[in-house]
Design a protein around this nucleic acid. Structure first.
Length: 423
RNA sequence: GGAGGAGUGGCCGAGUGGUUGAAGGCGCGGCUCUCGAAAAGCCGUAUACGGGAAACCGUAUCGUGAGUUCGAAUCUCACCUCCUCCGCCA
């Protein structure tokens, strides 16, 4: 959420931000409601001041005076409660619109209509040259008995899957590597809930506009698409000691995405699934743009280091306006090379929000000068399984259909090659 | 799931309808005293919104929401959270 004072003073900038993000929101209507709301507040406050002044005197009054005053206050009360109702309605409409106002994208964010307009920033790693026809991950995994899609769908429905055998060990090894790298960098490890309250999703900017993409279960509970949600919710309504910043957390959780709107997309394989596991990086830092930028680059670099350690070719793209979330100021996607498709596929998403999320969640800290400020928030994927297995298995596949295990993972895998096992 | 108990400021804790944003204490900040410190004393210490150049003024906030009342931390209802005991359970 943006500061209403900022919107009022920079209406054109906010409209341009909405345009760049391809978000439809009526800023003029919002400003109209804001003015109406503030006028009503003034009126209601004046009524209440009158009421409070009378209440203060009533105990000292003579019986006659008291009766008169109480009668007068009774009339005033009726008028007041009407105004209060109008104010409440106005504030509801105002808040509904406020929640749809996007954050301002950074100047370095390219204009564009879809992810096709994202711009490559850098590419790393050498793409493998195969002396044979490389298989895609589905074929590779089915041959090695690492996955069961048919029975996955039987049990879990469309996009359901079971991982098996070494694919499970490989996933666990990747989580281990992620934990190890992040712990070494001073991140506090968390296992985070995926089951979250609606208010937490509103606070992180996933709701209300994205409600089709989130699974809802009973009791106003939802299944979060990322641990960013619960890790941000963890600090909701808290005042953080400024000396504790930056707070760096690594959060492991299952993640759920309904993928509404992607019905026809990536229907085969493990690329787009409803349920997956992720180690996420989340940072809360001082409310300072330079600080946010510094951590954004840092979080991006952390994920790159992981991919470099795994020996996977990747590239970093800067996402265009239309491909930014409501609260994001800037985002880099990291895309990892998928040999069978001869293209890069998104495996990581690194973004910063300034105080967009913390304003909604009321996460503040006391600065050195004693002032309360909304912290800045950022997050990035460290590793998401099973999607990363696609690149990993395809890049490391051998002519005989086996797959080499990257050096760094061998200590957890206990083997250097994945070969076929029965059942 | 059943039966009890409790939610007040950074913390502890008083307060059962009328100048209570809230006693007292702790903590924190400033000052006095001191060569310095400790101790002691004095003063000050919430947040949000609205108005104002500012001083400051107004409003709201005692788990959350709704209600009763001229007036609610205090009364009523619903919900949430925590604690104790019983049951169940990975």
């Amino acid at each position: 959420m943006l500061d209403i004072n900022f919107i009022r003073e920079n209406a054109e900038l906010v409209k341009e931000a909405a345009r760049k993000k391809r978000v439809v929101v009526d800023i003029d209507a919002l400003l109209g409601l804001d003015e109406k709301r503030r006028n009503l507040i003034k009126e209601v406050d004046a009524f209440r001041a009158q009421q409070n002044a009378a209440s203060e005197k009533i105990p000292q009054m003579t019986d006659e005076e008291r009766e008169q005053t109480i009668a007068a206050m009774r009339d005033l009360k009726e008028e007041l409660s009407q105004k209060e109702d109008t104010l409440k309605d106005t504030e509801d409409s105002y808040m509904r619109l406020m929640l749809l106002v996007p954050n301002i994208p950074d100047l370095s964010v390219p204009d564009g209509d879809s992810d096709a307009d994202n711009a490559e920033v850098r590419a790393q790693g050498e793409k493998p040259q195969f002396g044979f026809q490389p298989k895609d991950h589905s074929a590779l995994m089915q041959n090695l008995n690492l996955v069961d899609f048919e029975r996955g769908a039987k049990v879990s429905g469309f996009r359901g899957y079971f991982l098996k055998g070494d694919a499970v060990l490989l996933s666990a090894a990747l989580w281990q590597l992620a934990f190890e790298l992040l712990a070494r960098k001073g991140f506090t490890l968390h296992s985070a809930p995926a089951l979250v309250r609606g208010i937490t999703l509103v606070g992180t900017g996933w709701l209300p506009q994205g409600k089709d993409e989130v699974y809802k279960v009973e009791d106003d509970l939802y299944l979060a698409g990322t641990a960013e949600v619960s890790m941000m919710g963890m600090f909701e309504d808290e005042i953080i000691d400024g000396s504790m910043l930056p707070i760096k957390v690594a959060a492991f959780s299952p993640c759920y995405r309904s993928e509404a709107g992607s019905y026809g997309k990536d229907t085969k394989g493990l690329y787009r699934v409803h349920e997956f596991m992720k180690v996420e990086q989340v940072v809360l830092c001082r409310a300072d743009h330079e600080e946010s930028v510094r951590w954004h680059e840092e979080l991006t670099k952390n994920a790159e280091e992981m991919l470099q350690a795994l020996g996977l070719p990747y590239r970093v793209v800067v996402n265009c306006g239309a491909d930014l979330g409501l609260g994001q100021v800037k985002k880099y996607d990291i895309e990892t090379w998928i040999p069978s498709q001869k293209k890069y596929g998104e495996t990581h998403s690194s973004s910063y929000f300034h105080d967009f999320q913390t304003r909604r969640l009321n996460i503040r800290y006391r600065d050195a000068d004693g002032k309360l400020k909304f912290a800045h928030s950022l997050n990035n994927t460290m590793i998401a399984t099973p999607r990363i297995l696609i690149s990993l298995l395809e890049n490391y596949q051998q002519e005989d259909g086996s797959v080499l295990v990257p050096e760094v993972l061998r200590k957890w895998m206990g083997k250097e090659r994945i070969t076929k096992h029965e059942t």
